[in-house]
Design a protein around this nucleic acid. Structure first.
Lengths: 256, 256
DNA sequence: CGGGAGGTTGACAATCGTCAATCAGAGTGG
DNA sequence: CCACTCTGATTGACGATTGTCAACCTCCCG
């Protein structure tokens, strides 16, 4: 069960979390052909309108998906961490409808899309898990629409911080006390549909309320009061579909 | 090839558009067990947090997916027309992360989720098409994030109208000249993250510019200048992934 | 020690929201 | 055929959240 060896292990773990994969399924994932690549901060994996031929799995690091609108503004539409299959989901779409860029120096594995498709249909359990993964992504996107469309600045940011906290903990790269936020305020602004100036004001507001603390140099966010942050962010982790895991509500209950 | 008989025909057509399905594939779709139901305007198909046991295909009519945020506001996160598999995509998620409501009196077909899953993996061609359909939905959601997050009121609405025009034409329920918009201004407001008052002002603005005309009683939107509307809405239909079809840009080119 | 990226602030502008009144059209019952 | 009612559309006055502009600060690094 503990075959920690392949760079694809995080991907196998992620998919296992979505359903019961047997050892053969897991091994089949690890046996996928891949090509490792080191990508530097701000390097692009895909550009909008490009043709997709490979799927990309993040082994280490963070990435964002973004779109550029006519006025030149950028909107970040998703954020990914280790184990995420950034464009694996797009194994079925031919032309990219958005760009993918690394937030940090990262290790990624590229897998030919045909091999991914084949695996998905050869092994329904794996296929289901992959499909599920893309559906969870879609669910998060819907939540972001609501976040940007119907919440004020403070709530939007608190919500995003809650989401990151839960997501990072699920990925094993954060504790309940806080996490390293690999985004500048410019990037945060493009994530929640605000300006960097307003993000700054809102973030300081959350600090002033003693919900969080930040370390500017390490870019670490410490959560001082999870229950209040959840409340401030109107956060409910149902949309993350984390199933078996300890839910954020459970955590908030414990903290209360 | 023309077996127009089953209520599931629109679904088969839609899936065929995403890839090459052979006659057996198409027949397998039509052979799915289903239960027809008439739903009145504003009836709910699913409520947020409910457990999903059936998948729903719209045969006639329109539906919206929406979320309610803490402050009580509603955000519509998707809009669906005939042929759309509203919760088929959620065959893999157990608990609904949003509500689904009909915009008009409609005919829908309910299919047990297990049968959908089985079909998807028994017939990879169908499974691919279904997966693709969910990925297109996700792509639209991402575009909506950008629309709400980074475009001003006028542009947001123009963009939405362009999307509806293209989508409705693809579904065969609109011409290039216009379409019946089954939404009130309240619902439009909850779609683009504005207030109804501001939607009204923006819509009248587009009319004043002679980009569109509306018939209040039939709720019909006529497009007077497609090219200018596309420009005003910063619209590029790449994200709709319509492949083989005549693209909106082709149309705008023709009109120019 | 200079340069640069990113964070912070203040003053001011503006898009968009709120509130509330009024209007228009469809359906209903007498 | 007309009053009545209800939903949805339209407008105006006013308020406020958020954006814009621009300066300054802080830390890191060569």
């Amino acid at each position: 069960m503990l075959l920690k060896s392949s760079p694809l292990q995080p991907m196998a773990d992620r998919l296992s979390a979505h359903g019961d994969l047997n050892d053969d399924d897991r091994q089949a994932i690890l046996d996928l052909p891949y090509r490792m690549k080191h990508l530097e901060r701000l390097a692009h994996v895909v550009h909008e309108r490009e043709t997709i031929v490979q799927c990309c799995v993040i082994v280490t690091g963070f990435a964002i998906r973004y779109k550029i609108v006519g006025a030149g503004a950028r909107q970040i539409v998703a954020m990914h961490t280790a184990g995420d299959m950034v464009d694996l989901q797009n194994a079925f779409l031919t032309v990219a409808d958005h760009s993918v860029q690394m937030l940090t120096d990262s290790e990624v594995a590229f897998i030919p899309r045909e091999d991914v498709k084949k695996l998905a249909f050869d092994r329904p359990a794996v296929g289901s898990a992959m499909w599920l993964e893309t559906l969870v992504d879609a669910s998060i996107a819907r939540e972001w629409i609501a976040n940007v469309g119907r919440r004020d600045a403070r709530t939007r940011l608190a919500h995003l911080l809650c989401e990151f906290s839960v997501k990072f903990q699920a990925a094993g790269i954060a504790t309940e006390d806080g996490f390293a936020l690999p985004m500048t305020q410019d990037q945060l602004a493009d994530t929640v549909g605000l300006t960097p100036v307003h993000v700054n004001r809102s973030l300081r507001g959350l600090e002033a309320e003693n919900l969080i603390t930040r370390n500017r140099s390490t870019r670490m966010v410490s959560i001082l009061d999870w229950a209040k942050l959840v409340s401030a962010g109107d956060f409910d982790d149902t949309y993350l579909h984390l199933r078996g895991r300890e839910s954020a509500f459970a955590r908030s209950g414990r903290a209360a």
